[in-house]
Amino acid sequence: MSDELPNLKRAMRAELRERRRIMTSSEVENATEQFTLHLTHLTERLAAKYVAAYLPNPDEPNIRPWLDWAHTRGIRVLLPISRDDGLLDWVVGDGESEVQGQFGVPEAVGEVLGPIAINEVDLIIVPAASVDRTGMRMGWGRGYYDRMLGSMEQRPPVYAVVFDSELVDEVPGEVHDRPVDGAVTPSGIVELQPST
């Protein structure tokens, strides 16, 4: 019984990855335009001047145009660096310099700030494999974002970026999983109701 949930999540992640890989280039381009529009609107609506986000890998929704927009507006952008101990360090990204980090994930180059740097931001944008209507987020299985969100005493609004089909009625959750406040999809910004 204890192996069922991790196996279910593994199977779901594999299916979601495959769905993302078979998207056409025009579907990806259209989604990217919509992600950029909605993330820009969200940032402006919250009057965020300091945001935490991530550099997407090729299988993730492309938020790079929004990151570029944020840089041109003078919005400070914190980007994560994975540590061996399962925590995230942060770098203030310049929108230009990056390297391939652990697990093949793109990471920004710059002065490394510790895990508590996240406590200063106005908005957090996180990747996800899927999100449900209660705000439960299923990540890619390494737990970095759950640990980060769970360690924050106070946290600003947290939004996951997913494709429309990845916003579902229910994702399997475990005790350590942390909810998000909303999802940004190509169709819009969806406010969720985390059950605490």
Rank of each mutant, 00 (worst) to 15 (best):
R13L: 06
I124A: 10
R137W: 01
D132F: 00
P56Q: 01
A31L: 01
P6Q: 03
S25I: 08
W90K: 10
N7Q: 09
L79C: 13
A108H: 01
P65M: 06
T36Q: 07
L78G: 04
G104W: 05
V91I: 14
T72L: 09
Q102K: 15
G93T: 13
A31F: 06
E4K: 09
L8N: 08
L5M: 14
Q34P: 04
L113Y: 11
P58F: 02
F103D: 06
D122V: 05
L46V: 14
P115F: 09
L16S: 09
V112L: 11
R73H: 13
I124E: 06
A14H: 10
Q100N: 09
G110L: 03
S82A: 14
W90N: 09
N7I: 00
R20K: 07
P6D: 03
P58G: 02
V77A: 10
P56K: 02
R64F: 06
D89G: 08
A129L: 01
E15K: 13
E60D: 10
P58N: 08
L67H: 05
H38Y: 13
P65F: 03
S82Q: 09
R83L: 04
R137H: 03
D3K: 11
E29P: 00
G93D: 10
A52F: 08
P127K: 11
R64N: 13
V92H: 09
R73V: 03
V92E: 15
T72E: 14
A11D: 15
R20A: 10
L5V: 15
P115W: 04
L87G: 11
E15M: 03
E15W: 08
R19A: 15
G135V: 02
R137L: 00
H38N: 11
W90P: 08
V99F: 06
M23V: 05
A117L: 12
T36D: 03
A117Q: 12
L113H: 15
E27I: 09
V126W: 00
A108E: 11
P106I: 06
D122M: 05
S97P: 11
R10H: 10
D59Y: 05
L113V: 05
Q100Y: 01
L78I: 10
Q102Y: 13
G101W: 12
E33D: 15
A117N: 10
G93M: 02
V105P: 04
L16F: 08
I116P: 07
I22M: 04
L55Y: 12
P61D: 05
L46K: 14
N62W: 05
G114Q: 12
A128T: 02
D122I: 14
Q102V: 05
G110K: 02
R73W: 03
M136P: 00
P65R: 02
W66S: 05
I81F: 00
